[in-house]
Nucleic acid binder design. Structure first.
Lengths: 254, 254
DNA sequence: GATGCCGTTCGGCATTGTCGACCGCCGTCC
DNA sequence: GGACGGCGGTCGACAATGCCGAACGGCATC
């Protein structure tokens, strides 16, 4: 059986390279970074540009990601069944808790946010759909680690980054936390990724009981926690939402 | 000079095909739709799957768009300078007008929404970032048609769809509307795409005075209009926002 | 003006992508 | 239960397509 199609893999590598930085890249930088001949990189970039995946600044000749990626990303959300079924429950959860709500799925080595509901007040908030969160420092991530062996396998041999002094960076500690998560049915994370922020999340299952994602709330630690622990009424709401979404996906009653 | 890289163009065609429907597609459907050999389509799909651009349902063997598109689409927004600079002004515009705000750019033959602020009330709203709007039936589209010859060129020879009885479907009528837009500096659209919905938009320029996008408001015709015309105080706010964003991009004062 | 860097183009060639044929599995029909 | 047809997937042959090094013209710097 043959391997992947080389030119496609190279195009994907170019897109990831452009996505990884904050500024536009020139052809020579792209070619050098990926160890490709300039002509090769140019052919790929020119085709990606024709298809809308890459745009070139006419003045500087530098390249950046193109608008077609945004359009296709939105199409991904439109056909994403979990998200479609979670929309209403997520809104209800934000209302019930007064905090912002995230819906995440496992993607490569992290949690991809596929839906995000703002905290229902007038504050300025930044939408995070399409962003990645770490598996090991967030409640969403811990839930996926606890129930999905594929997620746990992604961390094997990895060095866990310490975002705050409270981040669990030892795999044994993290495994113990996942066992606790499975025992009580939800995960919490208190100031493990951002100081001052706490969150709780619970698992979503599909109609065959497979883990397919997680839903959680996140907010200021002073509101989310009481005596250092996530408030029980928040946990109850999160678990209710996870059950409702799971049922909507066809999972049998717990 | 050689043409585009065939395998990349084929991969893009497969992604567009998957984006265009509401259900997952099988290998045979993909191959037949694009007139490719099954082995060829399979090789492309397998590579796209390895890279995260496509996902396969393990039970049915059918394919759908993959999560990496959402992540890259978000990265596109992160490096999109116009959007970055427009965020605060768009929030202010939603507050000042009480209506929802859209920021759009020309993409292929339509307007791509790159930012969307909800109407500041408690109603349920659907985020439309990443979605496409028609050039000929929306205020955003008319602004781009009026000022950007590339946009106007996209409509040459096209049949304009009538979304409502009020949609302009004759190119001459649309050109007259664009002339009016250039004359007064903003565009309006009253029940041209959706009945009951009206909108107004104004152009955003970059530091070289090139048209790079448009900002607009949209809402219920009863609120947005007065005696059949867009309310002047809404127009003033939209134009203020467009000027502020343009200035932030380095465009000289008007 | 000379130099170096850039994005772009070019022609040769070999390897990579493509194709038709085939495989095993599954669902449907008789 | 057996035959059939459709499916996603695999295989080997081959030629055309993708890749490469070299060259080009434009621009900025010294």
């Amino acid at each position: 059986m043959p391997g992947p199609i080389q030119s496609l893999s190279r195009a994907a590598a170019i897109l990831r390279l452009l996505a990884g930085g904050e500024r536009r890249l020139g052809l020579s930088e792209v070619a050098t970074s990926l160890d490709l001949a300039k002509g090769t990189a140019h052919g790929i970039l020119r085709t990606l540009q024709l298809e809308g995946f890459v745009e070139q600044d006419p003045e500087s000749g530098r390249y950046q990601l193109g608008a077609e990626l945004l359009r296709l990303g939105q199409s991904y959300l439109d056909v994403h069944e979990l998200r479609a079924r979670a929309l209403v429950w997520a809104d209800d959860l934000a209302r019930a808790t007064g905090e912002q709500v995230y819906l995440g799925v496992l993607h490569q080595r992290g949690v991809l946010i596929v839906h995000h509901v703002f905290r229902p007040d007038d504050s300025r908030q930044v939408l995070e759909v399409g962003s990645m969160q770490p598996l090991h420092g967030t409640a969403l991530g811990k839930v996926l680690l606890a129930y999905d062996p594929v997620a746990r396998g992604e961390l094997e041999g990895a060095e866990l980054e310490a975002y705050t002094p409270r981040t669990l960076t030892d795999l044994a500690d993290l495994d113990a936390e996942c066992a606790l998560t499975r025992e009580r049915g939800w995960a919490g994370a208190v100031e493990e990724t951002w100081e001052g922020v706490a969150s709780a999340a619970a698992l979503i299952r599909d109609r065959r009981r497979n883990p397919v994602g997680a839903v959680g709330v996140s907010g200021a630690v002073e509101r989310v926690c009481e005596a250092g622990f996530v408030r029980p009424e928040l946990v109850a709401s999160v678990r209710d939402a996870a059950r409702s979404i799971s049922r909507d996906l066809g999972a049998a009653r717990f």
